[in-house]
Design a binder for these strands. Structure first.
Lengths: 207, 207
DNA sequence: CTATGTGAATTTATTCACAGCA
DNA sequence: TGCTGTGAATAAATTCACATAG
């Protein structure tokens, strides 16, 4: 048990483990070895054991890991043990897909607020969420929502970020294709789906 | 000039550099220093210079990098110098957003084929692309399309992958929330948008 | 003077290999 | 015997610091 100097890569992998654990639970398993888990994911078993060892002794020697218990531990580490409400800014194509995405629930996320600048969209409902004008972003403070997803055009991304930070948001998942500046206490993770595609040709043989 | 033992992380950053370079070109710049570029991205300048140094001497001492030239070099490294056609499998919420996403063009990608299993969607057009039945996936071989994006439910992901690989696809961007198995010659990059959100709470202070 | 390019130093992450427990 | 947990060894990536060129 160390809880110090945790590799970032370990944190990145924990949700992958969690997803695989929930999946193998669905299939009726109650416990799993690092070996078996590694096959679900495509890493090696030593990596998995090492990753968990940073946080405690979760397994049973000779047996493996109890799935329910391990999921609970991962949730605790990732601070997902309390369900989190999330705001969405930008209800375009990508934003709409994000709202509809079923995969958030397994991590305890619930998108409960949505903002857009387009008057035609405001007051419309999508998945039971009423789209509000971006001028209402400050209301996130009262609602105690401190996670947000940004899916707006590049030009608007920094402005929306500033508004979110001012409203008390401390974690941002950024789908806008640009780097955004935030205070040190705020964490941003940026996803640009085109950039991930862009490094694929490098790895594949011919044209 | 080495071209050997290139860090994976360097490859991951090249599209980020390219995006920033194209952006600063839009703003009227013709050349840029590693220092200035680093401010666009949030890394340090030594990292940038080191990354480029793996591939050649692209800069001019005392001046910086010519933007047009550097973009051309990055495109060549990433094998993006020839425009690439891409197939999409799964035209649901996420797939539709992917088709509509404007960011692919800057890397020379063009989504020119789309497949779905839902009879209601087949033959419909989306962004000028006719949606075809997944049984038509083998036609990708004749069209010489070897990149694909998968955005189908988890249950279908492996089956669609197998069909794509059989049709000659060698690079897959996988949005389905699961690990998929492919032959060694095929490269898969998986994005699960929920997993990226899932590691955000770990980094932010309170609930 | 300014900014690149790069060996060397350092930090971070992965893998090995095995002691020790159920 | 089977599988975990972990120091030690190795590998990978980043940062430093400076010689060198325009």
């Amino acid at each position: 048990m160390k809880y110090r100097n945790i590799p970032n890569e370990t944190i990145r992998r924990l949700p992958i483990y969690m997803r695989a654990l929930l999946f193998s639970k669905e299939q009726g398993r109650q416990s799993i070895s690092s070996q078996d888990l590694s096959r679900f994911i495509g890493t090696n078993s030593a990596q998995i054991r090492k990753d968990f060892s940073y946080f405690g002794d979760f397994g049973t020697k000779g047996v493996g890991y109890n799935i329910d218990n391990l999921v609970k531990e991962i949730k605790k580490i990732l601070k997902l043990d309390i369900d989190k409400r999330v705001a969405l800014v930008g209800v375009g194509n990508l934003g709409s897909a994000v709202i509809a995405y079923p995969g958030f629930k397994m991590f305890g996320f619930d998108i409960t607020a949505a903002f857009d600048i387009d008057p035609k969209k405001i007051s419309r409902k999508i998945k039971n969420i009423v789209i509000e004008n971006i001028s209402k972003i400050p209301s996130l403070r009262d609602k105690e929502i401190n996670l947000a997803i940004i899916a707006v055009p590049r030009q608007a991304a920094q402005e929306m970020t500033d508004a979110l930070v001012k409203a008390g948001v401390t974690g941002i998942l950024n789908f806008s294709p640009c780097y955004i500046t935030v205070p040190k206490k705020v964490k941003v993770i940026t996803i640009d789906i085109a950039m991930d595609l862009a490094r694929l040709p490098y790895y594949v043989p011919a044209s």
